[in-house]
Amino acid sequence: MTIRVLIADDQAMIRVGLRLMAETEPGVDVVGEAADGRAAVALARSLRPDVLLLDIAMPVMSGLEAARILLDEGGAPRIVMLTTFDTDENLHAALRLGVGGYLLKSSPPEQLVEAIRTAAAGDGLIDPAVTLRVIAAFAAASRLAPPPELSTLTAREREVLTGLARGRSNREIAASLFVGEATVRSHVAQVLRKLGLRDRVQAVVFAYETGLVRPGEGR
Rank of each mutant, 00 (worst) to 15 (best):
V5C: 08
V5W: 06
L6T: 09
L6V: 12
A8G: 09
A8T: 04
D9S: 02
D9A: 03
D9W: 03
Q11V: 11
A12N: 06
A12S: 12
M13I: 15
M13H: 14
M13K: 11
M13T: 15
R15L: 08
V16S: 13
G17Q: 13
R19G: 07
L20R: 15
E23A: 09
T24E: 15
T24W: 00
E25V: 12
P26T: 10
P26D: 14
D29P: 00
V31C: 15
G32W: 12
G32R: 12
A34K: 05
D36N: 15
D36F: 03
R38V: 03
R38P: 01
A39V: 11
A39I: 09
A39P: 00
A40Q: 06
A40R: 03
V41A: 09
V41F: 07
A42N: 05
A44H: 12
A44Y: 10
R45K: 14
S46Y: 00
S46L: 07
L47C: 10
R48H: 14
P49W: 12
V51W: 08
L52E: 09
D55C: 02
I56G: 04
M58Y: 02
V60T: 11
V60H: 07
M61C: 05
M61P: 02
S62F: 01
G63Q: 03
L64D: 04
L64A: 01
E65F: 01
E65G: 02
A66I: 06
R68N: 10
R68I: 06
L70D: 10
L71N: 11
L71W: 11
D72G: 14
E73H: 08
E73A: 15
G75V: 05
P77I: 06
P77W: 10
P77S: 11
R78H: 14
I79V: 15
I79P: 08
V80D: 02
V80I: 08
T83Y: 04
T83H: 06
T84S: 15
D86V: 13
T87Y: 08
D88A: 14
E89S: 13
N90T: 03
N90Q: 02
L91K: 06
L91R: 15
H92D: 01
A93S: 12
R96S: 04
G98T: 13
G98A: 10
V99T: 08
G100L: 00
G101P: 05
G101R: 04
Y102V: 00
Y102D: 00
